[in-house]
């Protein structure tokens, strides 16, 4: 069970090739869903278009819950892409894991802290960027001293803790799910005959639960991303 990552060095940077593969797969799936669902658009939506519009409205509601649409509208694409990408990523690791030799190739890309923390850092970075862009350097800087000046160190810490919690929450949930899945399907199923018997219902139950967890985590990640951005962008906070 000692799976290693297929590491590969290119121009002085280490690439985990399984991450590269899975991110690409997830992106392609998201893109296919998005493109297929928006063919033959019509005023009266049917089937696929209903689904993608439901996703759009869902994200719109998330954004509307933390900021007004005038400021939040520009983050709509970001939110839609985030929620779809994370959801698809979470689901990818559920049906199976592919191990070639000793290297784990097929898994959820979100089961890697590097990926989730990158996404989290990107969101927090964007929040700072838009904070400066929409409120100016002055308004952006003043926010660090609100509501009281002595809060400044806490505010600095908050930025890092936000990034960490945002990324690690997603990573932890998905990674834990995959560990248990691999334990059930990999270890328990091959231990004894009753282990195999037990492994089947347990795996089914855990996969169902993981679908739930994966959806919830995609939703939470998008929700928190929008909340963090709104904290930087909104004027009255």
């Amino acid at each position: 069970m000692n799976h290693e990552a297929p590491m590969y060095e290119f121009m002085g940077l280490w690439f985990n090739l399984s991450n590269v593969l899975m991110i690409t797969v997830a992106s392609i799936i998201v893109l296919i869903i998005a493109v297929v669902c928006t063919r033959n658009l019509s005023m009266k939506p049917t089937g696929k278009q209903n689904f993608i519009e439901w996703v759009m409205d869902f994200v719109r509601n998330i954004i509307n819950s933390s900021m007004d649409w005038k400021t939040g509208g520009r983050f709509h694409v970001l939110g839609v892409t985030l929620i779809m990408f994370i959801f698809v990523s979470n689901m990818l690791g559920l049906p199976f894991a592919v191990v070639v030799g000793h290297e784990l190739w097929w898994k959820s890309p979100t089961a890697d802290p590097a990926v989730t923390l990158t996404l989290a850092a990107m969101v927090v970075g964007l929040s700072h960027y838009y904070g400066v862009k929409l409120k100016g350097v002055g308004g952006y800087g003043k926010d660090f001293f609100k509501p009281k000046a002595f809060m400044f160190p806490l505010k600095i810490v908050e930025e890092f803790s936000n990034t960490l919690t945002l990324g690690l929450r997603l990573y932890g949930n998905i990674y834990a799910g995959e560990i248990l899945l691999s334990l059930l399907a990999g270890s328990l199923a091959f231990s004894t005959w009753w282990g195999t018997l037990m492994a089947i219902p347990l795996t089914v139950v855990w996969q169902g639960f993981s679908v739930f967890i994966g959806s919830i985590q995609a939703f939470i990640f998008t929700l928190l991303a929008m909340v963090y951005i709104s904290h930087k962008v909104n004027h009255d906070h």
Binding site: A5, Y8, W14, F15, P109
Partner: peptide
Amino acid sequence: AFNGGDIIFT
């Protein structure tokens, strides 16, 4: 190893 490549790729 620090997988900076993953980060950039992501």
